[in-house]
Each structure stands twice: as structure tokens, then as C-alpha cells.
Design a protein around this nucleic acid. Structure first.
Lengths: 109, 109
DNA sequence: TAGTTATATAACTATATAGTTATATTTAAT
DNA sequence: ATTAAATATAACTATATAGTTATATAACTA
């Protein structure tokens, strides 16, 4: 599981958010997320595979901690888009191509 | 298709990269990517659904252009990780006591 | 020792999706 | 009018994966 895929799943992002705030055991994450224990364990496996978390065994508990390093890849990907984001973006919603429900195709070329 | 999912697929990231550099027609993207035309069209559909690209019809051609706005969501997600990235990252592997200063540790089980 | 707790994993189901080939649709060219 | 070109989509296959329930494993506890 790579970084992008690991972040693609919303529950996984939430789990990572929880782990970012403080190291968590599986049961803590079960409580915080409302997911079943196997579901959490499975997500944690993917997060481990993506190297986004590390595990510290402590008796029966496993403390999951954040490893933000792989997020550099996302940062790197986003980097070239950043100036476009800041220049184009702050101007509120210029993209008038919302021809979602209308068939009026505002084509000008 | 949401932003995270749209970026999860490597070919789709490559297509977006190409479109970022210059507006592209489908055939241009087929050439650049080596994917089949239906595969490209399918990826473009997801990118459209994620609002990451817009289309400008021009005769039989469709010019696909970048809309970076949805990337703000990724930026927002990454934001809280950014200081961790810069501080922890260069120094390899010592994130043991990252919670001892301000965090209340609420171990409840 | 027996039972309980914490976590992981196996087996399964259901869904999403990346690719394919074939075809439809629209526009351009003859 | 035909034909060709550009693109989209349908139908299909194969794979990944998010969830489930049941079970395995290891560590604690009485």
C-alpha cells in the first residue's frame, strides 16, 4: 500500500488524524472511530505498509505512532500545483464551467 | 470520485501532471501516457468527477485543463502534519516522546 | 490453570475500479 | 453522402479492498 492509496480511504485518514494527535492503541482507535476492531486492525495494517505509522508493543497493547515521513511524497506531488493554487484559487470560484445540470454548453471556441 | 481517490491512481496522477503542464486533448494524453484511448477517457471522467479538470470542447477535440481548486482539500489535510514533517523528519527516528509535553495521555484501558 | 483482554488474521461477501474490446456519437474531410 | 477522426460509453473481466464473523495468538489476571 502506497501513501496515496493509504490516504484515499476516509476512515484511514481519520485513524491517522487520531494517531497524529496522540499515540493510540487499537482499542483506543476502535472507540474513537466506531469501527470494529478487525476493521481498525486492517486499516492499521495498510497504514503500516505505507509506513505512515509505527508500532510499539507494550504488553498486550500496541501503541501506534505517526510517521509523517511518507507524506513528503504527497507534498512533493502537490508542490508544482501550489502556485496555481495560490494565484488562481483565492479569487473565489472563477471556474464558471459548472455545466453540471444545464445542457447549455457555454462553449466559446 | 473525491480528490483523494482521484489522486490514488498513478496513471491518473500522470495524466494530471500532463494536463498541468499544458491543456491536453484526449489523443495527446493517449500519446503521452501510452494508455489506450478508452482507459484515458475513463480516467478523465474520474478527474472530471473530482473537479480536478475542466473540458473545453473544440470541434471533435476536447481540451482538458487543470482545475487545482480541489487540491486545497489535500493541502488542508496535510497542514497539521507539516511541522512534524519539517521538525521530525530530517532527524531520523526518534519520535518516542512526542506526546509528553502537552498531551494528556488518557489511557483508558 | 483457567479465563479474560488486546490484537491480528483468515475466510468470506460486496463493491469499486482499472483495464479490455466493441460500439456509439459527434464533427471533419472528401 | 461516405468516410474518417476524436471521444465517450457499454459490457465485460480481473483485481483490490472495506467490511463482516469467526478464530488464533499472545499476554495479562484471578
Amino acid at each position: 500500500m502506497n501513501t496515496f492509496n493509504a490516504l484515499a480511504e476516509p476512515n484511514r485518514r481519520r485513524l491517522l488524524e487520531a494517531i497524529r494527535q496522540e499515540p493510540c492503541t487499537v482499542n483506543m482507535l476502535v472507540s474513537k472511530s466506531g469501527l470494529s476492531q478487525p476493521a481498525v486492525s486492517k486499516h492499521l495494517r495498510y497504514l503500516r505498509e505505507a509506513d505512515l505509522v509505527t508500532v510499539k508493543p507494550d504488553g498486550q497493547k500496541r501503541w501506534y505512532e505517526l510517521n509523517p515521513a511518507p507524506l513528503k511524497e504527497i507534498e512533493a506531488f502537490l508542490e508544482p500545483y501550489r502556485q496555481l493554487l495560490s494565484s488562481r484559487l483565492d479569487a473565489p470560484e472563477q471556474h464558471l464551467d459548472s455545466m453540471k445540470s444545464t445542457k447549455t454548453k457555454e462553449i466559446d471556441n
